[in-house]
């Protein structure tokens, strides 16, 4: 009876790996132990994780306080005005920004608009289905939007073209391609990287409502030629028709889990259902806390845990901002951030 219950609680695993490991077990004598370990993990996932944590490591070999390897790739999608692909371990998030021109709104004539939306593509996880966006995606989107607004990451006055007449509307869409835990961290980083590498064209809007590139035809033609030669990279910021966004702050978040009194930093999708509580801390460059999120869970988080989480987030922030700076430089895009990233 107990076996059946735990079998229902186990996460879905792809079938071929079982077949492959069974085949490998048949082929090599040492392989049967791998099969036993995997079977044990499927049947008793909680005890499996407990055995690792008691030794101070995680199933994938990391120490408890180490986040996974992170990589940022910029300008991956050429049809978007700015894009970023962020990988934290296996979790993959792709963000793309598209700019459109809108008439300035009546109550905020000198501000543009920034719309952030998150979609968990059905291919990211076995629980996602096509159709209406899931609650998880909506929750992520709202959290991100609230952080962008509240922390004032982008001063929307930069998006103004002509006060009272026209402004830029930036649509930032995030697609989760592989949901392996720490989705919020990856999404926030992708959004940040995209906004940091976004270039706005200098345009003017005439009375008839038509949009023109600012400057003479010569200045306008040169960036177009450059863009055709180098389709993948962003345009060189030397030409005045393009300006980058200034980010007032660079928030970086870190998700930690509480498991049997220990803090597990950056849990994977395998570990997440077994954790007693999930804490997410967002900090900026100065180490000030911009957001802290703990939703339910079966255990409370003591003050010590909370402080541990925030400290871990600060260290992570330094590491990640360094990576972002490297990525921006590698893409040939001058740093748009206001404060120099601490390293």
């Amino acid at each position: 009876m107990g076996r059946r219950r735990s079998a229902a609680a186990q996460p879905r695993q792809p079938l071929p790996s079982q077949a492959m490991s069974a085949a490998a077990a048949a082929a090599a004598p040492g392989g049967s132990e791998a099969l036993q370990a995997e079977a044990f993990q499927r049947l008793y996932p909680d005890q499996y994780l407990a055995k690792f944590v008691a030794q101070g490591v995680r199933p994938d070999g990391r120490p408890l306080a180490l986040p996974r390897a992170t990589s940022i790739g910029l300008g991956v999608v050429t049809t978007a005005d700015a894009s970023a692909l962020v990988k934290i371990g296996s979790t993959t998030v792709l963000a793309g920004a598209k700019c459109e021109v809108m008439p300035a709104s009546a109550d905020e004539p000198d501000k543009g608009r920034l719309v952030v939306q998150v979609e968990m593509a059905p291919l990211c996880s076995a629980e996602c289905r096509p159709g209406r966006p899931s609650e998880a995606a909506q929750a992520l989107g709202e959290q991100l939007g609230a952080l962008m607004e509240g922390a004032g990451v982008v001063d929307r006055r930069q998006l103004c073209i002509d006060a009272g007449k026209a402004a830029w509307a930036v649509y930032l869409d995030l697609y989760v391609l592989d949901a392996d835990g720490s989705l919020y961290d990856a999404c926030l980083l992708a959004a940040l990287a995209t906004l940091a590498s976004l270039r706005l064209h200098a345009v003017t809007v005439d009375d008839a409502g038509r949009i023109h590139k600012a400057g003479e035809d010569g200045a306008a033609a040169a960036p177009a030629a450059v863009a055709q030669q180098r389709p993948g990279s962003q345009q060189q910021g030397a030409a005045p028709p393009l300006r980058s966004l200034q980010l007032d702050c660079q928030p970086v978040s870190l998700t930690c889990g509480v498991y049997r009194g220990q803090l597990l930093v950056d849990p994977t999708a395998e570990e997440e259902p077994l954790l007693e509580a999930l804490l997410t801390a967002t900090v900026d460059e100065q180490g000030d806390v911009l957001g802290f999120y703990k939703a339910g869970g079966s255990a409370t988080a003591s003050q010590q845990r909370v402080l541990e989480c925030i400290e871990a987030a600060k260290m992570r922030g330094k590491e990640v901002r360094g990576l972002l700076q490297q990525a921006l430089e590698a893409a040939g895009v001058a740093d748009g951030g206001a404060v120099a990233a601490g390293s």
Partner: peptide, 11 residues
């Protein structure tokens, strides 16, 4: 997409 915003292409 907001019905009001208009796309603009550099090229």
């Amino acid at each position: 997409r907001d019905a009001q915003s208009v796309p603009w292409f550099a090229e």
